[in-house]
């Protein structure tokens, strides 16, 4: 399998993503103005950062980059897309995953480690994870407060589209473990077909033992194992 990482003006986690992805396989770097996606790419990563300076709304302008037409077609054809942090914001703006991400309820930009409980271990992104193993991953965002209306929330629950929830270190999903006010502690969601994942925490930043933790690697292990 091969990964492709999209680089937007203002992406700043692109090289972290490329670094992890290329430890598995050859990885393409795609520029936001590209108008095609190489045929042999199986999974596209929309990395974190501040695409187009987060002007207007986070992800709102990146959604109209030429590559995004291709990413939308790629996803609609059932291929796999993962959006991390700003990548998640771009996915919501593009309508590839439900909901929106608004200002953290504390108003602070949050840059710290959090704990994550995996809710759905049946997707290609999460099959190597267990509900019992709590992940420790970093977050770094000002607009990570995930919001959906009540009907959509019920749909997300009944379709098992909630991939990750913020929890404490023992796995309890409680108000105190919710860093940003996200509805129902949601940190990551899947689309209905489960081929697109958006999440606010940064698995690519904790995927190398040299950095102290590698809990994020299990997400890339899942993708590689399922698509290779």
């Amino acid at each position: 399998m091969k990964f492709g990482v999209v680089i937007f003006p203002g992406s700043n986690c692109d090289h972290d993503a490329i670094n992890v992805a290329s430890s598995y396989s050859e990885t393409y770097q795609l520029w936001h103005k590209d108008t095609s996606i190489p045929n042999d790419i199986d999974c596209i990563i929309l990395p974190g950062g501040f695409s187009f300076g987060d002007y207007l709304r986070c992800g709102a302008i990146a959604k109209f980059s030429p590559i995004m037409n291709e990413v939308i077609k790629f996803a609609n054809n059932g291929k796999y897309v993962i959006g991390i942090c700003n990548g998640f914001q771009i996915l919501t703006e593009a309508g590839l995953v439900p909901g929106a991400l608004i200002r953290n309820n504390s108003l602070h930009f949050l840059c710290k480690d959090i704990y994550l409980k995996t809710e759905n271990t049946n997707s290609i992104f999460t099959s190597e994870l267990s509900n019992q193993n709590i992940l420790k991953l970093p977050i770094a965002h000002g607009e990570g407060n995930f919001i959906v209306d009540d009907n959509t929330l019920t749909e997300l629950e009944s379709n098992s589209q909630i991939a990750f929830r913020y929890c404490d270190k023992d796995g309890n999903v409680i108000k105190e473990s919710n860093p940003n006010g996200s509805v129902s502690n949601i940190a990551g969601v899947l689309n209905k077909k489960k081929n697109v994942l958006g999440l606010m925490p940064h698995p690519e930043r904790y995927s190398d033992n040299l950095l102290g933790y590698n809990d994020g690697k299990s997400i890339f292990d899942s993708i590689f194992k399922n698509l290779n």
Binding site: L56, I61, F64, E93, G99, A100, D149
Partner: peptide, 8 residues
């Protein structure tokens, strides 16, 4: 299309 996000 761009200036507002109808979800929010």
């Amino acid at each position: 299309e761009l200036l507002s996000n109808p979800i929010i």
